[in-house]
Design a protein around this nucleic acid. Structure first.
Lengths: 217, 217, 217, 217
DNA sequence: GATGAATGAGGATTCATTCAT
DNA sequence: CATGAATGAATCCTCATTCAT
């Protein structure tokens, strides 16, 4: 597992959390809103600091560091549930894969809704910056893959998933899940997701949109 | 159908096409490469104009206009095949939906590969700019929907697609297709897509990843 | 004698000496080291105050005043020995001019070595600031001249110095002595001066570098 | 001979000379005057650019580079005459060392008067910046030493200089010469040097200030 | 008395755009 | 038409100084 400490390295450069002053909170909130709306590059530090611009730099050193200060906690929260903790959620009961998938969508939807703006910033910056992409994407993929592959294998044994390579199933899942969240929260800037929509995408992932008796494989 | 003339409005502001001089081509090429690599905001006109910066403004008026000058032809090419012309492709023979879907993926893959960089620019700017998003997205969705809904209804009549609302099927298709291309070409910056990958995603869309006899609907 | 009270005026603006707290000592020490190394302009008060920046301003009012607070005691120590006290050192015994000169060099070398950093700050700021230069240089020159001229006249009477205008001899001495200390301690940042070097420059000042029997005067 | 190409390295980073536009000349002139008067650190680029600040950066890239652009030509002119070309000046006739020394002072005085402000900038920056000092001083010393040592040896053979180590004589000369020019042009900001003053320092260097028949060595 | 967060004026630098040649 | 020097507003960042705790 390469680059395991990318996030730790990033985390070390940012301000220790918890010690936030009122001003710091104001800055972070303004930064999140503006970065999400207009993007990091198109937001000036003058806009973020409603009062004194210098305060930003006293607190965060650089504009870049301010960005990391709001991204790192998000990523640290965002990753685990994509992997190890996900397995735990499964172990304690014998839910079906459909239930598992639906609860995954609901859980992540809730998380992204809570962090909608930071998620937007994350995706937007990820797309723009080669460095972030090269450092984080492999790490995220690696991190998420290991947990998911296990889950897929478990459900294959239970006979709930097609007998294809787990990697094939993972690829399909990644494409649909990432497509679902990115299109809803980043492209369409949705502020809510209905249960029906989650049920719908869960159904489609499991059953496909083809009629069962017409499958031409 | 709202905003039908968004593109025409955009097109009118840009230089008439076809009259491209050598200089213009140089500028366009450099702009495409740089915008795709670093993003519009992070590319300066000085970088684009290897020689005379003034030429850009003589030719395109503003940097914004240079961006539109390379996006508009792409969008004009990109949209039709998502809609009307797609239907024509269907009419003349009685291919299965699977074949239709596969050829759609292949066709769009070829198109995006040919215009990989402009596609990246398009998506990146779409994500970043509220204005572009608000003007283009509804138009694209509208435009693509009408054609697709017809196709879906045709295949439903032929019994190849599940008996759900065409809009439901369209939503699934949009999510997966947009997810597929954005993840491959923008997030992962792929330079090629294998036939196996297309076969794979086509299969998954049609059949899902659940085992047929375990479907819990 | 113009500007006789330049130093007193400067001294009045600064904190009364002797009452130095631990904190003040820390600040002064840090300031001396940093000012000497990087110069006054290139040292920020944040660097000087390892802990609380406010303390500097509580103690010294302004950064400028902190500079004066460390320069004034140095200048007050530095000047007298160049003048009056120098004469006293002569009166009680009948040393030769060579011995006098050598002991002057040794005395000043010891003093500058003890205050190497403050001497560097003094010269660097003197060179940079027209105001300091215009206020201090005439005062220093005046102050030092009067004492030295007396000494020179004494030694001329004893027949140990050439029969030129005392002002001429003073000018030569000033040039060489200032050149010696500035080149060693400021330009070359020497941390020690050997006795041989002092003997050498003393010899050259007295005898010149020309061969006695070839003098073309 | 180490660092022989320090200057070349510096020279490569700066704008090629000769292509100066009117604006560039204005900027250089303003920069020289202001840097000499207030020092590099205390001069803002806004002050230098009477019209558009951006022009400085279009032309010189950075403020630092502007400094080098005016220092490098000076240093390139300043160094040679301290060394090799000096020897040539000697070869063609059999002047006495006194005449040589006087003409050296006159030559350098004329040069420094012509470049008074740049010389001030040079010395002021040399004193302040460790990096410049560490790179240039050894180079200058090396460069000047080799030429001077030869000259000293020639005159020692002619019996015009004391029979001490050439290095000893060089050290004395360096101290007095650098002291002379730095005190006159940098500390005292003189705008002219009289022939009498040059004759005086030349005399003192050669004969010393001690009375010949009282030498106690 | 000490602290350090907050301040805001000022500084170096960037960059889209203009215009004289 | 093409050029590239000149522009100046805007940007990120620094820093001496203030002030509430």
């Amino acid at each position: 597992m390469v680059n395991k400490n990318v996030l730790n390295a990033m985390a070390e450069t940012i301000k220790p959390l918890g010690k936030k002053t009122v001003k710091q909170e104001q800055i972070l909130d303004a930064a999140i809103t503006l970065f999400a709306e207009k993007g990091y590059s198109n937001t000036s530090t003058a806009e973020i600091a409603e009062v004194a611009e210098g305060t930003i730099f006293k607190q965060y050193g650089t504009k870049e560091n301010l960005l990391l200060s709001l991204l790192v906690p998000f990523i640290k929260d965002f990753l685990p549930v994509m992997a190890d903790e996900l397995v735990k959620e499964l172990m304690n009961d014998d839910i079906s894969f459909e239930e598992f998938l639906r609860s995954l969508f609901k859980n992540r939807t809730a998380f992204f809704l809570e962090n909608r703006e930071v998620f937007q910033i994350f995706i937007k910056e990820l797309i723009y910056r080669e460095d972030l992409k090269n450092e984080l994407l492999p790490y995220i993929i690696e991190n998420a893959s290991s947990g998911f592959i296990k889950v897929i294998e478990i459900f294959q044994k239970r006979g709930e998933l097609v007998d294809k390579e787990p990697e094939f199933i993972l690829k399909t899942l990644s494409t649909v899940i990432s497509g679902f969240f990115i299109s809803r929260f980043v492209l369409l800037n949705r502020h809510s997701i209905s249960d029906e929509e989650i049920d719908g995408i869960t159904f489609s992932i499991l059953n496909g949109i083809g009629k069962v008796d017409s499958i031409t494989t």
